[in-house]
Design a binder for these strands. Structure first.
Lengths: 343, 343
DNA sequence: GCTGCTTCTGTGAGCGTTCACAGTAGAGAA
DNA sequence: TTCTCTACTGTGAACGCTCACAGAAGCAGC
């Protein structure tokens, strides 16, 4: 009875068993397993059959021991935990990376390092060689982990350009400035002229670039810049709410807001609603990300789509290339305006 | 210049280097590493010092090769991907499990198996022994993975009682029935008598139990049962919205709804709002989960808190015990009524 | 003295794989 | 024939660790 918890697990077949079954040597089986070069068709067939018959699966520990590679990559999140819970973007990215890696049969180790203590532990773990490379997800730039890993020579790809590390670290990012430009142009096209902005944190590339795009387009259109229309947030819903309140107090005639994230835009909607402003009639609201938060909001948000599926697949591609010995690379992907009900 | 991408990774120290440095044998170093029994204080100190000096970290592949254990566990999600994106509960659970495992220095491998194809691959991967055990997260019962893993003898802990597998599989769950009872009692205490319910899928234990709790309390209170007040959903936001519309059509005098998940409750709010019903004045709405969706909703949801932090830590505890050879176990945890603005 | 026991230490073997190398067979060219 | 080249195959030696075992040293009791 109680055996059911432990029973059923007998010794798995080894490469030896397969070799014996196929009537060839270990070496030949190994060659079949690793691409099949320099193997006669007859031998290859025999090995394939033997593998099927024995149910053989390669022991990754033994393989890793000799190759020095772990055939797994880490997905490292250095955000404090509440951001991970709150922001649906992480979910999408995680899912995308998992799938892209699955195509290469590479498992993903999720690593969360919210506190300094955890960060130390994880860094040690990674530099000990337990993963072949790291997908780094963190929006802030002061992050010491990226620099430590880079210095240790660990292949690394960041999501979003890490400020201050120059070209030594690979990254994949959406074209933040261009996306912001599209949104502000869209708001102008609707006839809005008093366009506010709730920026992201200005120590993040996304925060800086999206604000720059906003300013550029207004200047190009000859619309008077008004610093009362600029407030900054930290990508959280609460900061969006607070930002909108400040904007309304400072510029009651505001007829549109460009918000640097969908989550903040949700907060903006809450604040506008409370102030009795109708969206989009009185104030048009444009978000950024096209995260699940965009359709969860009411009204559904007009936003800038970040191509998360491509971002994740590119991150994986660049990381694997780097593990394979290539140099770091930067990839910038285009964004797209998605019109919904808030503008 | 381009060396910077590959350089910096020299051969890590082995147990041999430590032994030489400490002036002892491999065996002694290994003993220190694994608990330090039968080692003289002097030798232990020398080894500790040598480990610090050389920066030695044990090579897990080599260790796993001989012990046959991987010292890692899998977090397996067999939901279709949209549910993973949408439902914040998964996030919370994932985070909790990661942290609980981190305390044991055990990394977590995230495995997503939304399609049949992925399911096959992952099952093969797991049964090949690449993880020591699996934390299984999936709400539906028809799930073949649980049964396959159980049959293969893989230590397994499910989140929520798996229907149809009896006592052979460990699980950790919140007390769904009791939580539902609390919520319905709360609605009754507010003077509501025409209380509707949007259930979860009735092939999930949560769906069944929460509905049962609802029925029990109404019966106990002598409130007339009315099947027009009962509709079922699938835990998605959209199904909550559709459910509320059906309820309003069939029982326009409804003055409260108990919704079996916060996410569905968000949909219910949307539908009520569109129908011009004020919440909570006209219709009180009670959710379930106390997920981030509860505070994201407006008005913020009164709900039943599932103790996610305890659920995840218990799942990890039970799994590790089972890996250590103990028998499967079931853990039921209490819930708690959280009052907010929707009732 | 010898025997037995406990505590500690070193050594050889082996986990399952890949890699480098040596070697075989057959074809084609001189 | 002999030599060279290509296509393929087998074998021993690692990889870094743990485990089982054999021994050494110290101490007690006879």
């Amino acid at each position: 009875m109680t055996m059911s918890s432990t029973g059923g697990r007998r010794k798995p077949p080894t490469i030896h068993d397969v070799a014996r079954e196929a009537g060839v040597s270990r070496g030949t089986v190994s060659r079949v397993l690793n691409g099949g070069h320099y193997v006669s068709p007859a031998a290859a067939d025999a090995v394939d059959a033997a593998i099927r018959k024995t149910g053989y699966v390669v022991n990754r520990h033994a393989r890793s021991l000799i190759t020095g590679r772990s055939d797994s990559v880490g997905f490292l999140l250095t955000e404090p935990q509440e951001r991970f819970f709150e922001d649906p973007n992480f979910n999408v990215l995680l899912r995308g990376c998992t799938q892209a890696l699955a195509a290469h049969d590479i498992p993903l180790l999720l690593m969360l390092a919210g506190t300094d203590d955890e960060r130390r532990r994880i860094t040690r773990y990674i530099t000990a060689g337990h993963v072949d490379g790291v997908l780094l997800v963190s929006s802030h730039s002061g992050d010491p982990v990226a620099e430590e890993l880079r210095a240790a020579g660990v292949p690394l790809v960041a999501c979003g350009k890490p400020i201050g590390l120059g070209s030594k670290v690979s990254y994949v990012a959406a074209d933040d400035r261009d996306g912001a430009r599209d949104m502000v142009r869209h708001l102008l096209a609707l006839g809005r002229r008093r366009i506010g902005v709730v920026t992201g944190p200005l120590d993040t590339p996304g925060g800086v670039e999206r604000l720059a795009g906003y300013r550029e387009v207004l200047a190009e259109a000859g619309v008077e810049a008004d610093e009362r229309l600029v407030v900054s947030g930290d990508y959280s819903r609460a900061s969006g709410e607070a930002g909108a309140e400040r904007l309304l107090a400072r510029a009651p005639d505001m007829d549109a807001v460009f918000v640097a994230s969908d989550l903040m835009a949700q907060g903006v909607l809450t604040a506008l609603n409370r102030a009795g402003r109708r969206v989009p009639q009185d104030v048009a609201v444009g978000g950024f990300d096209d995260s699940p938060a965009a359709v969860a909001a009411s009204p559904e948000l007009t936003t800038i789509r970040q191509p998360w599926d491509r971002i994740s697949s590119e991150m994986v591609r660049v990381l694997l290339a780097q593990i394979g010995g290539e140099d770091p690379a930067a990839v910038i992907l285009p964004t797209e305006l998605v019109k919904r009900d808030s503008t």
